[in-house]
């Protein structure tokens, strides 16, 4: 396969099927690593911006919780765990005007993923209430145990059958290096054959590498630790989030207007 990176992310037909077999086939690994997806100057840029320079309250609102957080035109959010040092930035493409490099990189990864999933790229990059839209997320984990409990997404065990989608894949863009910037389990993924893999160490992952993995396989982060002088486990993820009608903060008058409009549409 030719080198795939954030400037050159279109797969030809043969490459698409090679990748799909590696990810979805029962004999495949369930993941694929794109080494050197980002050049060093880009990983340096992202780490510098998000980990060192940004003062979140100036650009982001405090994350209000998943329900109704994301709607057309919603702002960027951040979450900050004071004791663990966890920082999460939710950066909708339309809200993140202050760090366009992250947007450009996110778009290249969302496009690469859509080719693998066989779904139209534009389907999940603009927010439509009632549907899903990708909200790129940058996460800095410094210390913690059971950081991400073992779970799967979009699998056959989803309580709501609407959420079952066996074609979904997730992408992790690694921006820091295990045993240099942080230690601990790192990202642990269960392969299609049921074996677990400690991705960073076993695959020799470096900052700028992109891991695409089957979303409905079990994945976890059991523990991470970092010293004061280390940046922590820094990565970008691209979850498709449910988009609401801004109902969380909508006023009663607006809600009534919305209901009346819906009723009118139905009647007409």
């Amino acid at each position: 396969m030719k080198s795939i990176n954030h400037r050159n992310f279109c797969l030809n037909k043969k490459e698409v099927w090679d990748v799909r077999r590696k990810i979805y086939h029962s004999q495949g690994e369930g993941f694929l690593l794109f080494k050197g997806f980002l050049e060093k100057k880009f990983t340096d840029h992202l780490v510098n911006y998000w980990c060192r320079l940004l003062d979140p309250p100036q650009t982001h609102l405090l994350f209000p919780g998943k329900e109704h957080a994301f709607y057309p035109g919603c702002p960027c959010y951040y979450k900050h765990g004071r004791t663990t040092g966890l920082k999460v930035f939710y950066n909708p493409l339309w809200g993140n005007q202050h760090e366009v490099v992250s947007n450009e990189i996110a778009v290249s990864i969302i496009h690469l993923r859509s080719q693998i999933e066989g779904k139209a790229f534009t389907r999940e990059i603009s927010p439509r209430p009632g549907q899903r839209c990708v909200v790129p997320r940058l996460i800095i984990t410094r210390n913690g145990e059971n950081v991400l409990a073992p779970h799967s997404d979009y699998g056959l065990d989803e309580p709501n059958p609407r959420n079952i989608d066996l074609a979904r894949v997730q992408a992790t863009l690694f921006l820091s290096q295990i045993d240099k910037d942080y230690s601990g389990s790192g990202f642990v993924f269960t392969k299609n054959n049921g074996d677990k893999i400690h991705c960073e160490r076993e695959l020799g992952i470096e900052p700028g590498d992109l891991l695409i993995w089957r979303y409905n396989n079990v994945h976890e982060i059991s523990d991470i630790s970092s010293r004061e002088d280390q940046v922590g486990f820094v990565r970008m993820l691209f979850p498709p989030e449910e988009i609401s009608h801004k109902a969380g903060s909508i006023s009663i008058i607006e809600k009534t207007k919305y209901l009346l409009r819906s009723m009118k549409r139905k009647l007409v």
């Binding site: 099927w17 799909r20 077999r21 979805y24 086939h25 004999q27 693998i116 066989g118 066996l166 074609a167």
Partner: peptide, 15 residues
């Protein structure tokens, strides 16, 4: 198994 066959014949992803 049916998903595997779809992939082997380049006919489709799981759906």
């Amino acid at each position: 198994k049916i998903i595997d066959l779809h992939l082997e014949e380049e006919a489709g992803v799981p759906s």
